[in-house]
Amino acid sequence: MGGKVSCTLGEVKNRADFILYWGGNPAECHPRHFTKYTIMQKGKFLPEGRKGRTMVLVDIRETMSVKAADIFLQVRPGKDFEVITALRALVKGNRVDTALVEETGLKLEQLQDLVDRMKRCKFGVIFFGMGLSMTRGKHMNSAAVLTLAAEMNAFTKFVAMPMRGHGNVAGADMVLRWTTGYPFGVNLCRGFPRFNPGEFSTVDLLVRGDIDAAFVLGADPGATMPQPGIDTLARVPTIVLDPKVTHTSRLARVHITTSVTGISSPGTAYRMDEVPLPLRPVLKSPYPSDEEVVRRIIAAVDKKTAWLPRPETMSSGVA
């Protein structure tokens, strides 16, 4: 089994002499990634900076990021899982069928060369983007690439990290974990947390129409959800907290304008490597912060007669 073998971005900056981006276009989607954390930086153990590092890009098409890469491997769409599986076999020294590799759009020699480089490096890292985790294979691809990185540690130091984005998604994930035990897709309807991605994830609930109301904070599902999900948001009372007008706010029953966190109100954001950063406001805003609005809503709800499940005797905690 794999797991998740990772590090904070400073380790990449200081040590990574082999950097592989898979299914992502950092030059356009994470424009500070190259300069602040990865290939361009001089690190504690990489005084030469860019010269001391090898950068490989794996993607289905040529993007702006290709220019920054030493090696570009173009995979046929939907064949990522096969490539990762072949790499895992080569890492272990197993024989891989040439014809099977060629179906992925790559050659066996290219993969063998990649594996040799991976084994030769002192510190390797794989950053994988939505081009891997949200295409054919989805979480199977993520699991496979994480396992590849874990298994590489039998030969040299190796880590992997998803290229997350979209505001403070990592922060939401962290808070959900310590309050409910699960990172997302949590259902509290029974008075305690239950987890089932595919059943309780936002997209599934919206598409099935399994909700009576929606409260949207720091997201614009009206722009990204499948149409049946958007129809649900328009049908039920939807409340949106957002500094600006969004696709979701247009179909919402209530839109409360809030100040922009990090610009006009303070807060904490988690980086993609799960390091918390304090946000300091630089401007004043006439609008309340998200936090203030949520607190006022909680206070108002608290005044209502509570519907609660019958208090249960605390269990002993035996698993």
Binding site: V5, S6, L9, N14, A150
Partner: peptide
Amino acid sequence: KWGNLDVEN
């Protein structure tokens, strides 16, 4: 399963 998170420096 194996989880690992190296923290810089």
